[in-house]
Amino acid sequence: MNSRYFCLLLLLLAPLDAAFSQEKPGWIKRAIQKAISDTTSPGKPSFRIYPTLAYSPETSFEFGFSSLLLFQAKNDTLNRLSEIQAFTFITLEAQYGIWLDNAIYGDQDKWFFLGRTRFQRFPLLYYGIGPETSGHEPALIDANYLLLRQRVLRKIVPNLFVGPEVDYQQLYNTSFNQPEGNHEYEAPLGSDGTRNLGLGAALVYDNRHNVLNVRKGLFGEISFLQYAPKLGSDYKFYGVNLDIRSSHPTNARNVLAWQLYGNFLSGNVPFNQLALMGGEMIMRGYYSGRYRDKNMLAFQTEHRWLPFRFSKRIGGTVFAAAAVVAPKLNEFSWKHIRPSGGVGLRYLLFPKKDIFLRLDVGFTKEGPGFYLFTGEAF
C-alpha cells in the first residue's frame, strides 16, 4: 500500500505565473497571484494557505488545506527564521485530522521550541513487526490518534541547546481489522487502545538559519524519553533518538545534504510507538510503518537544484536512502537493509525567504509514494 497521493492546485498552475503580468487579469488569476506572490518585506511575518487533494484506497479522496506562518523574532532579519505549519483534512470516508509542526527561535536564539502535534481519525496499516514482514494484505487499525510532542530548549553556548522534552501519545476508539478472509496477524501490543506519557531531555546543536530550506548548516539531536505507569503510561519503556543532518552548498543554487537517523527502544513498546520506517521525511516511497521494530537505523542523501538555472521558481531534487529495523541492537543485518530513492520538483513559494514547496516521488520495490509538503524533508 503506497503513501497518500497529493496534488497541489497552485503548483499545477505555477506555469501560469508568467501570465500574471497581463493587464486586468480575471479573478481566478488574481486569487492565484495573491496566493503565490511574496509581497512581505524581509523580516516581516509571511503567511500562506493553499488547498490539497489526496487519494488512497483506505481513505478514498481526501480534501484539505495547508498553511505556513514564517517570522523572525522582533522582525529582525539577523534572527533565525521560525516556522509554524498546519495541515487539516477530511476524507469521503468521514476521516479527518489536524497536524501542526513548529520550530520557533527566540530573540538571539535564547530559546528554541521544537515540536509537533497530531490529532486524527485515520486508518493505520499494519504489516506486522520485524524486518521481514510480508507486504501483502496488511491489517487495518482504525483509531483516533493524538500526539503532543514538544522540546523547550535553552541556549547554553552559541548553536547548542538543551532542555526538557515531553511526548504524549494516545490511541482510542480502536478496531483491529484483519484482511478479508485472512487472520494471519496477532493483535499487537496497544492495538486495543493505549495512552503513554514520556518525559526526558534533548541536546541539540543547530547552526541553520533557515529550517525549511537549509543551504548550509548542521543539525544534531540526541534525546532520551522514559515512559512509565507512574507518569500515567499504560506501558513501561524508554527510548533514545538520534538525528544528524548536514547541508553543503556546491554552488550558489545547488545543495548536497545528508541525514543519519536512529530510534533505539527497550521495554514493552506499543506498536504505534515502535521505530517506523517510511513516510514523508525519510525512506520516502515506503508507507510509514511498513517495517517497524524496537530499533531502526536510516541514512539518506539528496542533491537539490534551488532553483534550476533556467527558472526563477522551479527547482528539483534527486534522493536515495537506506534503512534497517531490528528487535535488538545486535540483530541488525545487512540482508534486511531496504533501499529507496526518488526525484522531486520544487516551487519557490516565498522568494524573499527562500522557502519552497516540495513534490517528491519515492520509489521502492513495492511501488511509488507521493508527497507534497512545504520545506525540505530534512
Rank of each mutant, 00 (worst) to 15 (best):
G190P: 09
F219P: 03
D206Y: 07
N177K: 12
D192N: 13
N173V: 00
F219A: 03
I156D: 12
N210I: 02
I222V: 13
Y238C: 00
G200D: 12
F219E: 08
Y145C: 02
R195S: 15
G190F: 06
N177H: 15
Y145M: 08
L148Q: 13
I156R: 05
R151Y: 11
A228M: 01
L203S: 08
E186D: 15
P158Y: 02
R154I: 13
R154H: 14
N173E: 15
V162W: 14
P158W: 03
E221D: 11
D192G: 13
G181S: 09
Y227H: 06
I141N: 09
N213F: 05
V204Y: 05
A202R: 03
G220R: 00
E184V: 04
H183M: 09
F237V: 00
G232P: 07
Q170V: 02
E184T: 11
N144M: 07
I141C: 06
I156Q: 12
P158A: 11
R149S: 15
L197F: 14
F219M: 06
D167A: 03
V166K: 01
L153Q: 12
R215H: 12
R215P: 03
L225M: 05
S191T: 05
A187L: 08
L146T: 12
Q178E: 14
V166F: 13
Q226F: 06
I156H: 09
V157P: 10
Y227F: 15
L160M: 12
Q169M: 08
L212W: 05
G198K: 01
A202Y: 09
Q150E: 15
Y145P: 04
S223I: 00
A139V: 06
I141V: 14
P164W: 08
K230E: 13
N177C: 05
A201L: 12
